[in-house]
Design a binder for these strands. Structure first.
Lengths: 121, 121
DNA sequence: GATATATGTAGACTCCTATCTACATGACAG
DNA sequence: CTGTCATGTAGATAGGAGTCTACATATATC
């Protein structure tokens, strides 16, 4: 099928846009990508996934799935980290909307949110 | 309620184990934590969440949710990264079981797995 | 076969982040 | 009210991960 250069490019482009041509690399994707990356839905999901993508934070969340709630020092015992690091991690999880915190006297208790349970299921 | 020291500790511990006492910091958590952290279920979930916790990888996955499949150079156009970095990211997503790859001629096409769709939903 | 295109691989670099130590705060016990 | 325990905050540091450049491979076109 001998077509001229520019015509072939146009054909490929049309195929891309209609979705029935496997040819590639017409670059109309930056705009769509930017729209996605700027959406709050995307930013929130990224924040949550980033928070869950750390071994010790995921461990804390994983234990919270069964325990209804845990205090900071119990999470410290489970992870073997210093209390400072645990505090940092739990603040990050709270900021991401994956846990809620409740203070009772000296102790700080954490519970999973429905968001977290939804992601892990 | 004046109880002796050791007796109070025992009481708190019992309360912890039965789950109806908010007292804290009896450290029987290391064992459970290790069991979780060693489980393949946990390792796999961690690998997937870590893979999704990067802005550009999540962007690629996000676009794949609507497009059924995209080739590497389209993902490159969307992210604005070099092809080398895109290749690295997509290999990571594939290794985590979040995308499958299909080669057709010069082009490498990626599709989401049901795992990925399940996590994002 | 020669050239161009799409992708993979290797190595180097930079920046982020997980972690620690040290100090501060707040609550409870004696 | 003084000491201890649980936690938070600040600052410093080391390791890892994301990124790039440069080179290699494979496919399609002329």
């Amino acid at each position: 099928m001998p077509t001229s250069g520019s015509l072939r490019v146009l054909g490929e482009r049309l195929g891309r846009l209609t979705g029935d041509d496997p040819n590639c690399c017409v670059a109309e994707y930056e705009g769509e990508a930017r729209a996605i990356a700027d959406s709050s839905e995307f930013r929130d999901a990224l924040k949550q996934l980033r928070a869950l993508g750390d071994e010790n934070r995921l461990l804390a969340v994983w234990m919270l799935r069964r325990k209804t709630e845990l205090c900071a020092c119990e999470i410290q015992a489970a992870t073997g980290l210093t209390h400072a690091t645990v505090s940092h991690h739990m603040a990050l999880l709270e900021e991401a909307g994956l846990v809620t915190a409740r203070r009772q006297g000296k102790w700080q208790y954490y519970q999973l949110t429905s968001d977290a349970r939804g992601i892990l299921r």
